[in-house]
Design a protein around this nucleic acid. Structure first.
Lengths: 136, 136
DNA sequence: GCACGATATATCGTGATACGACATATTTGG
DNA sequence: CCAAATATGTCGTATCACGATATATCGTGC
């Protein structure tokens, strides 16, 4: 029985990862250019990009960032130290902490989001093609 | 002048990052399940997924992994220690080191690649839709 | 054919960060 | 009103990518 994985499969999967990494590296470079650590940029995007009907708690953000909750706790603490995020205890459930990004952070995030939208529009065809080569 | 970034833009960009992270987390979990460090799995995929007409040198792999060359050097060293990769000096240019994955590593990579192909087929529609929401 | 800049790989020390283990605070259900 | 569940927070550790630097090899001008 021959392998069920062809050379083309390896190439296509490697190509997806390569293109994703290019996007991530681009993103991290843009974030640092405006003085943000890449993870803190992702935190801001996760908070601001949450659907309006979802409460921006630490746990929810941890899920969206796909990290353990205590990693999110530390990330939020650094962001608060840098004046990017504000915490406030939820009134409904005082175990929960609601997150909000500061006006300064929002300006940086908007600037970064414009750059990312532009870059994505440029790389989307290649990335989508790579994905569809693996998952037709 | 209003912001050129809408709420939908933030949500769509955040959604792309979320789905990419889900894929990465899935990938890292599968790699660890077969006893590979995620980066070493990526190294194997990068080597095996190289186009046939490209020489698998350390520098080339560093570019495909989007890391600095000395990061690739250390990654390769760990992979060699683990019996996953073999190095041999290029005859054409003795500065270059050509990389080859071992039969054992190839078996692991094939197994992982099957799992990734399956997962990608499952998540591709959502990911592509998210990309096209930002880059129509 | 040799000096020198360019290129490819390697080494070492460091800093950031994500995680596991554990702790605290609050809510909920019987 | 107590115990289990849930949400957040703290601390120590280990991994890993990077910058700075070093070594080896190649190519070129002279």
């Amino acid at each position: 029985m021959p392998s069920s994985v062809s050379r083309a499969d390896f190439e296509a999967l490697a190509e997806i990862r390569y293109r994703i990494r290019c996007f991530i590296v681009f993103s991290e470079a843009r974030a640092r250019e405006v003085g943000l650590e890449p993870q803190q940029h992702q935190l801001l995007l996760a908070i601001r990009g949450l659907r309006a009907d979802v409460a921006p708690t630490v746990g929810c953000i941890a899920e969206r960032l796909q990290v353990q909750h205590h990693s999110a706790v530390e990330l939020v603490r650094r962001a608060v130290d840098n004046g990017l995020v504000m915490k406030r205890v939820s009134e409904r459930d005082r175990r929960e902490v609601l997150l909000e990004i500061t006006p300064k952070a929002l300006r940086l995030l908007e600037k970064l989001t414009v750059a990312h939208r532009t870059e994505l529009r440029s790389m989307a065809p290649g990335l989508v093609a790579a994905i569809e080569a693996v998952a037709p």
